[in-house]
Amino acid sequence: MTRSIDTEIPASLPSEPRLVAIPRLAAGGRWRVEAMRSVSEPLLLWFTKGQGRITIAGSTRGYTANNAIFIPAGVMHGFEVGPQVFGTAVFFGRGGGIPLPATPHLLRIREVHAQQELNVLIDTVLREINSGQPAHERAAKLHLGLLGVWLERQVAKAAPEQTKPDAAKRLVSRYTALLEREFRSGSGVGDMAAALGVTATHLTRCCRIACGRSAIDLLQDRRIFEARRLLAETKMPVGAIGESLGFTSAAYFTRAFQHLTGKSPSAFRRAG
């Protein structure tokens, strides 16, 4: 079975920082990056080549080379990784104590000096992580701290250019945060809309404005990503997976899974 790069460490345990080439995140299938999901530690995506779209907290934007995208722990996201996309994903680890932004940021790094500074910091962190020198782990975390300073300065520099999200995007951000907490519960879009104080119709309209997808599409994408992850990485029975994700019957789970992936859960597991 192919293990996920960003979910192999139980979320309840501390994790060490690690750097992964962005194309490697899609090892085992592009669904690992394109489907809606979250990771349990802060993440910085540094794109050095290529372009695509990224959805963070229900809002879709384009990205291109020299874009740095910060995603806090637990924030739902997914992004395209075409064959010409290159860069590095920096997982800061859990329990590292590095001050980092509390909200997502997409930063267009136009200054060559700032681009070079980030490249040097990433290279230094990677060298220390792979080093056998004494105290290399502490050195890597100290350089990650400097990366956090770099990020804080770039966020401050970009602040005058950034516009505040409109009402639709604020609602969708609240929806995706609730969805991330509740996607296993069996709650539907109507239940979540009611919890947010709006109608399901209004919520779906706002989702289409923010990311071009409906509220149910986001919910099913998140649930089916988790189903694929469990099928690929565990021996959990298919029926138990569906039940753990709030599907009311095995048949409903199979239909939903096949509709989104083109395969039944059992066929997907065999293909992996």
Rank of each mutant, 00 (worst) to 15 (best):
E233R: 07
T199L: 06
E226M: 09
A200F: 00
A215G: 09
K157Q: 10
W150D: 03
R205T: 12
S173G: 15
T176C: 14
R208A: 06
V155T: 05
F183L: 01
L151V: 05
V149A: 08
A232I: 04
H202Q: 15
L144I: 01
S185P: 07
S214A: 09
A227R: 01
A210G: 08
L178I: 00
R174D: 15
G188P: 00
I209P: 03
A227H: 08
D191I: 07
L219I: 09
G145M: 10
I224M: 02
R205Q: 11
G197E: 02
A140I: 00
A232S: 06
A193H: 07
G145V: 01
V189T: 09
A158L: 12
Q162I: 12
I224Y: 00
G212H: 02
R229C: 09
V149S: 06
K157I: 11
E226V: 04
A210L: 12
S187M: 13
L178P: 01
R181K: 15
R229S: 08
I209G: 07
R208C: 12
F225G: 08
I216Y: 07
L230A: 08
D217K: 04
A177F: 06
A215F: 05
G212Y: 01
G197R: 10
M236G: 00
F225Y: 15
R184C: 09
S173K: 04
A140Y: 00
D166Q: 11
Q162G: 11
A159S: 12
Y175R: 00
G190I: 02
L203C: 10
D166T: 07
S173H: 10
E180L: 09
D166V: 06
K164V: 15
M236Y: 01
C206Y: 13
M192R: 11
I216L: 13
V149T: 10
S214N: 12
K164G: 09
D221T: 11
F183C: 05
A195D: 10
G148N: 05
K235V: 14
E182T: 09
Y175G: 02
R184G: 09
M192A: 11
A177E: 15
L142V: 13
G188D: 14
Q154L: 15
I224K: 01
L144M: 15
L171T: 14
M236S: 10
C206M: 13
H143Y: 13
A140P: 02
G188R: 00
L219V: 03
